[in-house]
Design a protein around this nucleic acid. Structure first.
Lengths: 242, 242
DNA sequence: CTAGCACCTATAGCAACGCTATATGAACTA
DNA sequence: TAGTTCATATAGCGTTGCTATAGGTGCTAG
């Protein structure tokens, strides 16, 4: 019931705080809980971190180091836009693996406190987008593209965190990801990525029909027929361009 | 220094809480501050709202009513995708006008607490996207499009809130907005937000789907399924209703 | 008119919170 | 050995969210 090892108190405090934060389920974590789990008394905390917020900032900083390490981990594939996709997916996975930490890092950013973290994350993505820009694959300046993609990335991750784990649909992520990349990339890159021309008209028509049917209560089909019909429609209209 | 008027204590508490929350700058707001500003003692708060969180939930609910009212305020332009743009901009403006409230509403959503708010916001956008889908302007099912667009919308708004007001660049919003809409819309709609929206219907969509299916041999359905599917399509597309 | 009955609010106080003034021990420097 | 610095502990202050209990208000019933 306590974090021991031979670690120094400062590290034990950090670890205890991170663990309690991760399992708090959103409710507040008290300094007394932290110090007890770390096997330390109150003044030790304030000696090392000055503040409760100071301790939490340190936890966030450690979390961000982990995030950056994860983003730098993989080798460049030579296809910058493909690397951007991997950065996006890494970001989402990081958020889903440590939702409480993520919410502190990206869900609660106030102007006065710390846009620094976000700035670093932006720089990381901009760096990668620069390579795409060099090879003429980018439609907009790398900085603007990075900000835009990161914003969408954060929004998607927050949405997924808000959903209960069993019913999380990662398609939201891949779809939004590709939409953003598609939008900032040049025409050539688009043609390479997607083979839409063939079945897109089917998909569009199916989507339109689906919406129209639900809106206008057609009585041309029985309810059981309609149910099966709609199921097939859904199958067609979600046959993806992934 | 106190909220008076002849309002009942419940309303005064709500107003005091909203005001303190808006000016708190992110730091915590105590029940004692709230009750004092409302000119009321502690048990009154707990009688009406049960909880501090209950009071804050009520504030958020009021804020969400305001948000929905803002989203429903303008008249449909007849061009669904243009209306989506306006919904997006309204969303951003709401967030920038009441950043603290917005952070509570969209920046701190936990799975267990309240995805209800998000679900309503999604439904609002899906409703509008349905109109676009009926007129064949949509590339993906309205529900998925709504989730995706809203996620990006939230992400952008949070990013803008995180920046200090003087250096906020709204181009991030319009760029991301158009990128998302562009990505979920069909080619025709991209070229010219065309207005054959009025005459589109079940029949037209069914005919289009029928033609498209026969032309491109989708492999989403088995041959026997396809036969029955086409028969139903025929029944729908030769019916005289609307 | 009065008795009873919901409703709503106030007095007073508890346990838990973040934090600190002060003191004690251990390790190193001179 | 004496002095200095770093790190931890004892004890307690003021504030927090919340509540057990009781008192006042406006109502309808008799």
């Amino acid at each position: 019931m306590s974090i021991d090892g031979q670690l120094p108190p400062k590290a034990r405090l950090l670890r205890a705080a991170a663990e309690l934060l991760a399992n708090s389920g959103g409710s507040a974590v008290s300094t007394r809980q932290i110090t007890q789990l770390a096997g330390v008394t109150a003044p030790t905390l304030y000696h090392h971190f000055g503040d409760k917020e100071g301790l939490f900032d340190a936890v966030v900083a450690a979390g961000f180091d982990e995030y950056v390490a994860g983003e730098r981990d993989f080798a460049p594939s030579g296809q910058p836009l493909e690397d951007i996709r991997r950065m996006w997916d890494n970001h989402v996975q990081f958020g889903l693996k440590q939702p409480e930490l993520y919410l502190v890092m990206f869900g609660n950013i106030r102007p006065e406190s710390r846009p620094a973290i976000v700035a670093d994350a932006e720089a990381l993505m901009e760096e990668m987008l620069n390579k795409a820009a060099v090879s003429g694959q980018l439609n907009v300046p790398p900085r603007e593209a990075a900000r835009s993609i990161l914003a969408a990335n954060v929004g998607v991750t927050l949405m997924l965190i808000a959903e209960k784990a069993p019913e999380r649909n990662l398609e939201l992520s891949t779809m939004t990801r590709d939409a953003m990349i598609f939008a900032v990339s040049t025409e050539q890159a688009r043609i390479n990525d997607s083979d839409d021309s063939g079945k897109s008209s089917v998909v569009v028509a199916a989507i339109a029909l689906n919406a129209a049917l639900q809106a206008s209560h057609s009585d041309q089909l029985s309810s059981s027929e309609l149910k099966l019909f709609l199921e097939w429609l859904h199958r067609i209209s979600t046959s993806s361009t992934s």
